[in-house]
Design a binder for these strands. Structure first.
Lengths: 116, 116
DNA sequence: TTCTTATACATAATATTCTTATGTATATTT
DNA sequence: AAATATACATAAGAATATTATGTATAAGAA
């Protein structure tokens, strides 16, 4: 999923969907490559999404009706923009809430201080 | 890994090793079943470790020299106690620090407020 | 102008990590 | 007596990611 110079890859598994849905809910419309760059930028390269993880997930989200796509020609190249559907927006909120809750539980379980 | 009534299983993937190492560093000596109960208790059953995930991991940790084991007879039943080695203690600290850092990165990436 | 890097998509083989199912056996509670 | 809890273990299968490979255009550096 990620090439990750900082975190062991196992840690990050399972968060990709949440991250992508959040990005889309924030930025309205994005294409795949743009998502990889945004995540890299926001995490200081601590998390880097690989294409082999991203594209299959995006296709899956489309198949599930979570996103719709629009293909745009940029010169002779193609960009595929992804937009959340209404149900996709709900899904994004759910996922975010779930993750926030999960963090709380893990903090208690691992006895992490607020400073950590 | 977990039977999880609250979180989607994908979210929790990759955290089991960190959780086990933390438990062992906290409680000194534990056996497998005890670990499953402790996690269940501490997380209000939000995270429940399955045996199919736990035992192979414990065996792996032993093979790596992260833990040592001691088998104790309780009546006619057997308990296998796990204890962190010196390098295991280091590993536990590393894993905890890594996870704390990971949470920070995810908070920024997902724009989660401190209250969330 | 040629070579490298960046942009932009996609998929297949493989690895990892987990879930679910199954198995064995003793102890305790109803 | 039967059901549940304790306690270990492993195997089949699913899910999710990594790594590798493929195609192609655009931009920047040598």
């Amino acid at each position: 999923m990620y090439i990750c110079p900082m975190y062991s890859s196992e840690l990050i598994k399972g968060t990709l969907k949440t991250v992508i849905l959040k990005l889309l809910s924030e930025h309205g419309q994005m294409y795949g490559y743009e998502m990889t760059q945004k995540v890299k930028e926001l995490t200081n390269s601590k998390i880097v999404i690989t294409e082999g993880a991203l594209y299959p997930l995006l296709h899956q989200l489309e198949a599930e009706g979570v996103v719709t796509t629009e293909t745009v020609n940029i010169g002779k190249r193609v960009r595929k923009y992804y937009t959340l559907t209404q149900s996709g927006n709900e899904r994004a909120k759910e996922k975010l809430y779930e993750f926030a809750d999960f963090i709380q539980t893990m903090k208690i379980l691992l006895d992490l201080q607020p400073s950590m």
